[in-house]
Design a protein around this nucleic acid. Structure first.
Lengths: 208, 208, 208, 208
DNA sequence: TTATAAACGAGACGGTACGTCCTGTCTTTTA
DNA sequence: TAAAAGACAGGACGTACCGTCTCGTTTATAA
């Protein structure tokens, strides 16, 4: 990013990226690809997700996709990461309540979307795991967790949560329980389920 | 219909399965298929798992597989379910300690095996979810959870766990947190990690 | 037939075929197989002719067919040979006219029937040719040609055909021309075409 | 090839075939496929002829074959048609002698080659007959027959053949008799057999 | 009678080939 | 020089038959 891509002469700064010659890559095509990828993930799941299908539906040549992403997994992740809106941070003055609201909104969102499924598809290929998971983690999960962790930390400071607890692990518990129910037992994770999980964890974590 | 064929009274139970005609299916072949399937899942993951490969390595014709399982997902699940040993129940008189030991042994096991990966691969295809997940749940997860739930219940009765907690949800928390770390962040779930999760949850759940 | 099958001691003649023990082969099944085979050949041609299909439609197990014929080609030939009625010999006192009538009836018959197609299918597999062709020749073609050759010979004696001609070759010319038109050019060989071929050959062969 | 590819006016002929987009089909692959197909037909006959085998031996992907020919029958015919050399026309001034020589060379050629067998394999599937036979007829048989018919016509003009005979039918007689002997009776059609057939037919057709 | 033997229908077995779909790469024309 | 279009080699899919091999059952002759 920040490739500038300015028309006129210029480019004194990055002489190592020496002004791409020839036809520049089409931003239109890129967007169409990502949008289509997400559509297909939503409609049919990662199992029916194929580069072929994305190219055809997006009206794009297959090599145009391969030029950007080396495999369908990378494409799926990029689509998820780029097109999933960030958490909208709220600050009502009550960090614990904000945490609850955010999580209660987040969980049903993830577990009913292409994003969730694509994330999970990662796990089925061990060879792929290492590199991609990090990518996904850094660009998708970490920022979202950071928001939650911050709220929890402030809740602890405000005495709403027992001190000394590992906030990261608390988040793991909440997200993990939801993940487990969704993935393993196939139950939908709606607001009610999310509320039940939050009640339990935050109840346990409440100061005595 | 007409089933007659009985000489004496007999067969009260399965009057609806009318004696299979023709050559019976080969238990040998079945076993070879499942064993090979699990090997491939362990070696290469679900992504590289193909009916073709299983048939070739098991020395079996492809139709012999399709006769039994309609798709590779069903085969993978069956392999996992049939070839994963059940939890070995222990009863030392201290239910909470037993719970700890069982979970601490179970978690690294699942998250480093084909079983785990195959289970997860389920989730990536929404259309498949309903039926198969139930199958997997009933034959694999439910029996294992039942053992854990029983221990927790007895721990509660013994006063080792705060009364009034939803034991099922407690199990979801423990297993979910491990699942989350393994799947999403890619961290291995070894005995230490398992211990940390257990410490936290059981600490929170301890009677005040 | 005439297998004797006498109950008592007897069998002085064929002591090497010592009366078969066990259940004798079912004539019913045999007939059903051949009838069905011919039906399928007529309906769908040799290309769609499969042992599987014959067995299924005849209500017979596949091994029951293989017990009798080693391959589908043999079965097809047997079906054709056994179920095609022989030429009905006529003798009006005018051998040449009888020849014409017989051939004019025979040609459309062969070139519109399963018999013809099955015969031809022979030719496409060189390995099969030797043995089976002889079988077909002996049991199907030779008897029919014998009738025709006899008529031609008597026509020659009666001065209706130029003497000194190779009657076998004359028959080859007539049947061959019809075969050629049917097979290679795909024209149907009806009575009119047959008449035209006969007119030409017999006209050429007429005494000067 | 070279096609000029001129910018200006040009292309008056095929304005409806608007310059193919994408990578053009590989002539190399096409040639390898046809050559291999003919080899297999020669070695093993049409019965053992499979797309699978052609693809493997030609070092070509299976879809590359299906892209060009919809079935193995079409491929076989194309191979025969494209790789069988045309009749080499001769004109010694004696049309009848030329006819004899040409036919005497042609018959053993056809009846001992893959070409012949592939042509015949056509006939065994009635559904296929219509369209393909025409194709084969137009591109293979008709040009060859035209040469023969022309010689016979000139022989008739030169008084070497009785006037008023149907030359097409004469050719049918000669080719048909050879076809019959080869296919039905399994006799090889060598130069001697060819000579015998020609002697008879041309003897009959000689002017009185 | 009772054995014994073989054929029966059914259907599974290891295989081969089918024709389709998708993968990731390569090549051509167009912009 | 990137874009779209589309062909390339390869490989897995799920299906249809192949010819063989059990099964349990039926129908004969032989003991």
């Amino acid at each position: 990013m920040s490739r500038a891509r300015v028309k006129p002469e210029a480019q004194p700064a990055d002489a190592d990226t020496p002004t791409p010659r020839g036809r520049p890559r089409s931003g239109e095509a890129e967007e169409a690809i990502l949008r289509t990828a997400l559509e297909i993930l939503d409609d049919a799941g990662y199992g029916s997700f194929s580069i072929e299908a994305v190219a055809a539906r997006a009206g794009v040549g297959r090599p145009t996709i391969y030029r950007r992403w080396p495999s369908k997994l990378e494409l799926a992740i990029e689509a998820v990461v780029r097109l999933t809106p960030p958490l909208k941070v709220i600050d009502s003055g009550d960090p614990l309540a904000d945490f609850r609201h955010l999580v209660a909104a987040l969980l049903p969102d993830i577990t009913s979307s292409a994003a969730g499924r694509a994330i999970i598809a990662l796990a089925s290929d061990p060879g792929v795991h290492a590199g991609l998971a990090r990518h996904l983690d850094e660009r998708f999960l970490r920022p979202r967790r950071a928001v939650l962790a911050d709220l929890l930390r402030r809740a602890a400071e405000a005495g709403q949560v027992r001190p000394g607890l590992d906030t990261e692990l608390l988040i793991d518990l909440v997200l993990g329980a939801a993940l487990y129910r969704w993935l393993v037992t196939g139950q939908p994770v709606n607001r009610q389920t999310a509320g039940q999980i939050l009640d339990t964890v935050l109840g346990l974590a409440a100061p005595r």
